[in-house]
């Protein structure tokens, strides 16, 4: 009983521990540019109370949600088709290989050149960032579907597209959802980074404006807010995922976070 409560609380304890280390570190260094954890946490409500900041952050989240949804609609079918057809896979694989190490947020300046600084440019960048891991995981998931399961489906009279939706999709779902989880954190990161680079609006912009103006409390408070969004979104998605694929063996998933 005790142990179970403790394991439930462990991530919370870890958060508190990390904040405590921060507090101790800043007290030891004692420089103006590194406020204590308590000061930073105190600055959080003032940001969340500011109408303009909240609108900015919500705008960021809206762009992120739309781009994330669009990426899933595009990437999952493509990944599944690549997984079931060698032809499709060898057609797209090299293209994906050369685009993988390109930082998607770095395309921001070029895309801004074409599409301006509006929502579209930002959403396109997030879309690109999310698509790659989702394609990759859907591909891996579909490739691992057992041939004999598909034979059974064919024997039951399912057509090829039906087999894709009724057999491949559910069988690959655990892997797809792992990709989506990576994609979700990635969406947040690409969002912040692109706003840091474009410096027009949004959460990333607040962060860097504060940095430029030397409002160190705000810088750290924004870091806490963005960090909490990342951890919160990931935890929520993980809950959804474990519910959707209760039947699957607990597998190996890395909640990656990079742009």
């Amino acid at each position: 009983m005790m142990a179970r409560v403790l394991s439930r609380l462990a991530p919370l304890l870890a958060c508190l521990g990390l904040l405590a280390i921060w507090q101790a570190g800043s007290l030891m260094l004692n420089t103006e540019s590194f406020p204590t954890a308590i000061e930073a946490v105190r600055a959080v409500p003032s940001i969340l109370g500011d109408r303009e900041s909240v609108i900015n952050i919500l705008d960021s989240l809206r762009r992120m949600a739309i781009a994330f949804a669009a990426a899933l609609l595009f990437a999952i079918p493509l990944g599944l088709m690549m997984g079931r057809s060698r032809l499709v896979a060898s057609f797209f694989n090299p293209l994906l290989m050369i685009t993988y190490p390109v930082p998607k947020a770095a395309l921001m300046p070029i895309i801004m050149l074409w599409l301006g600084v509006g929502d579209l440019a930002k959403m396109l960048v997030i879309f690109l960032g999310v698509s790659l891991p989702v394609i990759y995981h859907s591909f891996q998931g579909a490739k691992a579907v057992e041939e004999k399961m598909l034979w059974s489906g064919a024997a039951m009279g399912l057509s090829a597209p039906q087999r894709m939706i009724r057999i491949v999709l559910p069988a690959a779902l655990p892997e797809i959802l792992t990709g989506c989880r990576t994609g979700l954190v990635l969406a947040l990161i690409t969002m912040v980074t692109s706003e840091m680079i474009a410096r027009q609006s949004g959460a990333g912009n607040i962060l860097f404006n504060a940095l430029d103006m030397g409002q160190y409390d705000t810088v750290y408070a924004m870091i806490i807010i963005i960090g909490a969004m990342g951890i919160g979104l990931d935890a929520a998605f993980e809950k959804l995922r474990s519910r959707l694929v209760r039947w699957s063996e607990p597998g190996f998933d890395i909640p990656l976070s990079f742009a």
């Binding site: 462990a10 991530p11 304890l13 870890a14 958060c15 521990g17 990390l18 260094l29 540019s33 590194f34 954190v185 947040l188 990161i189 912040v192 980074t193 840091m196 962060l207 860097f208 504060a210 940095l211 160190y216 810088v219 750290y220 924004m222 870091i223 963005i226 960090g227 969004m229 990342g230 951890i231 979104l233 990931d234 935890a235 890395i254 909640p255 990656l256 976070s257 990079f258 742009a259």
Partner: peptide, 26 residues
């Protein structure tokens, strides 16, 4: 394991780029 697990659970999904301003300052 008992110490590392929860810390990794918290830090892995944390968007690390957001830490960059802090790293610049430090």
């Amino acid at each position: 394991n008992a110490v590392v697990r929860p810390i990794v659970r918290v830090l892995a999904p944390l968007p690390k780029v957001a830490l960059y301003p802090a790293l610049l300052l430090l």
